[in-house]
């Protein structure tokens, strides 16, 4: 949409204070262009989830700047008034476990974010159905989440992350529960969506199967990011 992607400069995050303080993020610099999918790779405890939480406006960073699209959302303090609306409208989340709402069917799970933003039910469901079709799960539109396979659930979760057309999608280990064919399919979907909707996507992963698909990769070690060129291998599905 408003396509300027993500820009993070000098981001820091310290948990706690005094003797028990942990500097989870020490120096994070990242740029993701609209339409680009980058990988974020690092050992356990290196700060990957912390970075996603800061970027997702779920926890507050300690210093630095974050720019989403053309809006500075953080600069030594939050720059947006309604963080909840920011999360709802600007950021799509995709998790390792799909975390669908068990009491809503597939369509309404996807339609929920626009409904929360005040879009009429019918309209919200129409955009949900369009996305489900794009992700090839439209035949399960009326099913409950518990009736779906892991891969189907993950695709529904991606649809939910995309439905409000956020400029940014944050995916935390989205392919961990999937076999390599499905994992690659999910990454392909993310790439397609990124191109189609001008979305900047960050994928946190350990997954050896999908690492070669990224054109650019950020490594993070002890809270410090390093950029690296990826293989950017084409999908041969």
């Amino acid at each position: 949409m408003s396509g300027k992607g993500i820009r993070i400069e000098g981001l820091r995050k310290r948990y706690g204070s005094g003797d028990t303080a942990v500097d989870a993020l020490k120096e994070v610099n990242m740029v993701v262009a609209p339409g680009e999918v980058v990988g974020l790779i690092g050992p356990s405890g290196s700060g990957k989830s912390t970075l996603l939480k800061c970027l997702g406006a779920v926890i507050e960073p300690s210093a630095g700047t974050m720019i989403l699209g053309d809006e500075t959302i953080y600069d030594k303090g939050w720059k947006v008034k309604d963080i909840r609306a920011l999360r709802r409208d600007k950021i799509g989340f995709v998790f390792q476990a799909p975390y669908l709402i068990p009491f809503l069917d597939v369509t309404d799970n996807v339609a929920l974010p626009p409904m929360l933003a005040g879009v009429a039910n019918k309209e919200a469901r129409n955009s949900a159905l369009a996305l489900l079709e794009a992700l090839d799960v439209q035949h399960r539109a009326k099913a409950m989440p518990s009736q779906l396979s892991g891969g189907e659930q993950q695709r529904v979760a991606i649809a939910r992350g995309l439905v409000n057309r956020p400029p940014v999608i944050l995916a935390d280990e989205p392919t961990a529960p999937l076999d390599s064919e499905r994992a690659l399919a999910v990454i392909k979907i993310l790439n397609d969506m990124a191109k189609k909707f001008e979305t900047a996507i960050i994928v946190v992963t350990h997954d050896e199967k999908i690492i070669p698909t990224f054109k650019r990769i950020y490594h993070i070690r002890d809270g410090v990011t390093y950029e690296e060129k990826g293989e950017g291998r084409a999908f041969d599905l």
């Binding site: 997702g56 779920v58 999360r87 929360l116 939910r160």
Partner: peptide
């Protein structure tokens, strides 16, 4: 609790 966390994450208001 987990569903509520997800609802909050995707922007549901406390009031809702």
């Amino acid at each position: 609790i987990r569903e509520i966390a997800v609802l909050k994450l995707i922007g549901t208001r406390n009031r809702t």
